[in-house]
Amino acid sequence: MRPILLSGHERALTQVKYNADGDIIFSVSKDHVVCAWFSHNGERLGTYHGHQGALWTVDVSPNSEMLATGGADNTMRLWEVKTGKLLKTWDFATSIKRVEFSPDGRQLLGVTEKRSGHLGSIVVYDIDLDIEAEQTSEQALRIVCEDSKATVAGFSYGARYIIAGHEDGSVSQYDAKTGELIFNTQVHEADMMVTDLQWSPDRTYFITASKDKSAKLLTTNDLEVLKTYQTDTPLNSAAITPVKDYVILGGGQAAMDVTTTSARQGKFEARFYHKIFMEEIGRVRGHFGPLNYVAVHPKGTGYASGGEDGYVRVHHFDKPYFDFMYEVEREQANL
C-alpha cells in the first residue's frame, strides 16, 4: 500500500470527504482554502477561494454538484463543485463547526458554535438542486442546544431524524421536520466531547468518536450502543468501512497536550478495529501529527486521512486488507 500524499494545504487539516462515487476528495484546513482532488492519483482538480477564516467542515451533495463549507469566518458557503464558483454565503454570529447534506441533497445542515451571548444551534436550509438558482436565505429549521452545544450532527436515513453529538459526550435525536428533541442519551464519558459522527452506508447506524478515547457504534432509531471500540488516545474521527466489517479510528494527543503526556511516537496512526469483534486488527502509520479526520471511500477500496501535520494521505487498500477474515467468518463464508 503506497499512500498518496496531498500537500496542498499549509495548515492543519480539519475535514476530508469523498464524494458519493469516491472519485473526488474534498479537503478543508485552517488555511482558508478548500481543495478538490482526484482520489485515484492525487491530482488536484481545483481550489475554492473566498473564506476569510479557518475552515472547519466540508460536505458534498450526493450528486457531486454542490459543495458546502463552514468555517471560523462565521459563514457557511455553497460552491459549484465543477468550477469553484461561490453560489451562496450564509452569515452567522458564530463559526460553523459542521455541515452536512441530507441523503437526497435537498437539505443542508449547519452546526453553529456557542459563544458568549449565542447558544450553539443546528440550522437547516432547503437547497434548490438547480445550480443556477438563487438559494434561499431562510432557515427551514433552527434547533437551539440549550444544555450542551452540538459539535457534530447529521441527517439519518430519509432525513427523518437529525442526530447530534454534544460537547458533554451525549448524543441527541431530533425530529428533522419539527426540530423537536426526541431524546438525549449520555453515550460517552461525561464532558468528553463527541468529535465525530459518521454514518453507515444506509444510515441506520453510525459511529461516534470522542475525546474519552473510545468510539461507539449506535443505532439511529433508539441510540442504542451496539459496539464500543476502546483505544489509548483521544479520538478525533471514526469511520465505518463498507465491504469489510471494519472501522477506522483516527486521533492522537493534541499538540497543546503533548507535553503532559508521554511523547511516544506512533500514536498518530489510523487504527483499524473489527466492527463486530471490537478488536484492533492493525494500524497504519504515516502522519506526524494527530489525525483530525478519516474518510472512507464509498466503495470501500481505500481511505483518506487528514492530519494536524497539514497532509492528506490517500490510501488504496491492497489484497491482505480484503482477504483478512476471522476464523468464524471464514467458516461462515465457506458454508
Binding site: 500500500m1 503506497r2 499512500p3 498518496i4 500524499l5 496531498l6 500537500s7 496542498g8 482532488w37 492519483n41 492525487g42 491530482e43 488536484r44 471494519y246 483499524f272 478488536e279 484492533e280 486488527i281 492493525g282 494500524r283 497504519v284 502509520r285 504515516g286 494521505r313 490510501h315 487498500f317 491492497d318 491482505p320 486488507y321 483478512f324 476471522y326 476464523e327
Partner: peptide
C-alpha cells in the same frame, strides 16, 4: 501538491494488539 509516500505494509490480523 502530490507525491507518493513510502510503501506501507498493512496486514490486518486477529490479536493484533
Amino acid at each position: 501538491t502530490t507525491s507518493v509516500g513510502e510503501n506501507i505494509v498493512f496486514r490486518p490480523m486477529a490479536n493484533w494488539k
